[in-house]
Design a protein around this nucleic acid. Sequence first.
DNA 1: TATGAATGAGCGTTCATTCAT
DNA 2: TATGAATGAACGCTCATTCAT
Lengths: 197, 197, 197, 197
Amino acid sequence: MSKPREEKYQAILDAATTAFAEYGYFSCQVSKIAKLAGIADGTIYLYFKNKEDILVSLFTERMGQFIKEIRQATGKYETTQERLLCIIRTHLRYMQENRSLAIVTQIELRQSNPEIREAISGPLREYFHLIEQVLAEGVKKDEIILADIKVARQMFFGTLDAMISDWVTSKKPRSLEESEDVVFDLVRGAFKINNLT
Amino acid sequence: MSKPREEKYQAILDAATTAFAEYGYFSCQVSKIAKLAGIADGTIYLYFKNKEDILVSLFTERMGQFIKEIRQATGKYETTQERLLCIIRTHLRYMQENRSLAIVTQIELRQSNPEIREAISGPLREYFHLIEQVLAEGVKKDEIILADIKVARQMFFGTLDAMISDWVTSKKPRSLEESEDVVFDLVRGAFKINNLT
Amino acid sequence: MSKPREEKYQAILDAATTAFAEYGYFSCQVSKIAKLAGIADGTIYLYFKNKEDILVSLFTERMGQFIKEIRQATGKYETTQERLLCIIRTHLRYMQENRSLAIVTQIELRQSNPEIREAISGPLREYFHLIEQVLAEGVKKDEIILADIKVARQMFFGTLDAMISDWVTSKKPRSLEESEDVVFDLVRGAFKINNLT
Amino acid sequence: MSKPREEKYQAILDAATTAFAEYGYFSCQVSKIAKLAGIADGTIYLYFKNKEDILVSLFTERMGQFIKEIRQATGKYETTQERLLCIIRTHLRYMQENRSLAIVTQIELRQSNPEIREAISGPLREYFHLIEQVLAEGVKKDEIILADIKVARQMFFGTLDAMISDWVTSKKPRSLEESEDVVFDLVRGAFKINNLT
DNA sequence: TATGAATGAGCGTTCATTCAT
DNA sequence: TATGAATGAACGCTCATTCAT
């Protein structure tokens, strides 16, 4: 019987995402997650080693899926221009549709607690790597001009991240989709994307 | 004699900055700050209402000074190009010289805990406002071309923030100064800064 | 199963009564109550909101039962004379059998701390009311003669209270029961109880 | 220079009486007493060994004076009837004019903390002794009839104590003086005071 | 598996007391 | 004497985790 187990595992992760998003990791009690998941406190420990494990699993699972989705979507496009626009769209839309995850990402991504940060950094680095791959290939194909891939990635990711940070913080945020083209336009300028394409 | 009082106040804030940077706000006990400041636990409460007040004061004081410094530095320049470069340089250098503050900023800036976030948001919004002012004026003077001031600010700040985030996280970071020109170049492209200037 | 919960609730109240009696409310740590009840400190907070809640519950429960008992016992008698003797006996005997409760009553009944006093005053006022009812009816039925019901109640209760206070304070107290008739005799004189009855 | 020392000593005792009355012994910080006395916290410790010493001194001094006053007043009268009325009047009036002292007496008289209670009990026992002397002499002179001096004293003191307790607790208390005659009348009945006298 | 009552380590904060000035 | 900043022991309460059922 692995299916019901998987289901409850995901239910806990869902509950944790919501709860962490609302209260923050430290201010959120395990009992709150349990209540939200509709199970007893103790049951959580049949699925996760401890509170930290919930957070780490949450990142691994959800960020992993996020990156997988972005990678798949990006794979459909050939040009760097299209790929970057695809990442922008997928990133913003995914976060918009998973607001709690977006919040948790914003909050806990930079946890100082070394153990937590280490566990979390994996998926994030993978995402950074994906972006940098796209950029590197674009440079190689002369579709963009960059003096420093890493800094370019920092700009690219940092922009999206700041947008989500604002959106998440804002009480009545306007849709992120509206800004997709604006961002892309800025990126085109920054990366000197060949307009002929 | 208000001098010694002020000195101890700052000493506690310094200790808190270091301690929060190392452990994170929640994982850092008040006693750790006290020990680091070389005072007794109780003494902290002669200067701060509670633990949260330390964090909030830290932001108000240190971020306030950071913004003040940036504002002063920026004021010396006329063109938008120069101003933006000035912000980039001041921001990166300030954070580089105040690594712990940079870390705390990264960590706690996005606290989910509503009270803390609210208290912190003031200085940050002020900084956002400053950047947007520079951008708006640049647009007005036709020195840059922007479809959306807010998104441009998000890109500008987000880029610097991501750079610092990487730098802070990295075990052996290369100097942020090296990247100043690279970032500026990207920004010039993004904001279509008139190359004639 | 609500039984074991009720049992532990009472056990904590018992422990608290003993501990408060020995050390006084403020000088008695919650951990002492827990140890006396044979449970962990934290368990206390599964049954009571906080330390004050223990004290208040103690009064509500125990004093409530004390008053209930007195009311029941008194209800069996018709004449004021019999009723007053009944109160005297029940009061003294109850306290004699619940020495710790008697002490706590003596100690905390007059707490200056306004919140505590307010919470405690309920049951006490109820008792005062009961006594005054008996007295008022006695006056109505011409079984006693009183110029002022309230002052009479103060004398009646004050006397019993002072007796218990002495008994509680005394290192080798003589039994309270011995004094029952003596008190009653004084009361008869004071209230001019009709000897014909 | 012993005069200013004595003055400040009394000032602290006055402040303590007021402060203890308002907050209760445990809930009243030494700093509150100091502020009320218009001196620095540390100064208190030039006059008193510690907080407890303040309370004990307060009782010794103030209760001592109270008893002295009662003893003097009582000494002026010959008959037991007059003497008892004199005690009633002096007791009630003294407490009415020293409301804070009355409150502190009510509150702390029955402190469970053994050390405090022991220190306090002295003056109180002296007062009990005084009352019992009057009663014993009255019995000897056939002016009153009592089966048990101690219980009679308990009634006498308990009544006054309960009256003050009510008066102290009440938000808008009626004057205690109004009740003097009523109490005396009750006492006359209880003690079978010979009306011929 | 699931429960949820029980645990007890851990921490923020208070405040009586001290001591350098 | 007087000050009041500094001290640090002490304690109420929380909550992640366990375990008997």
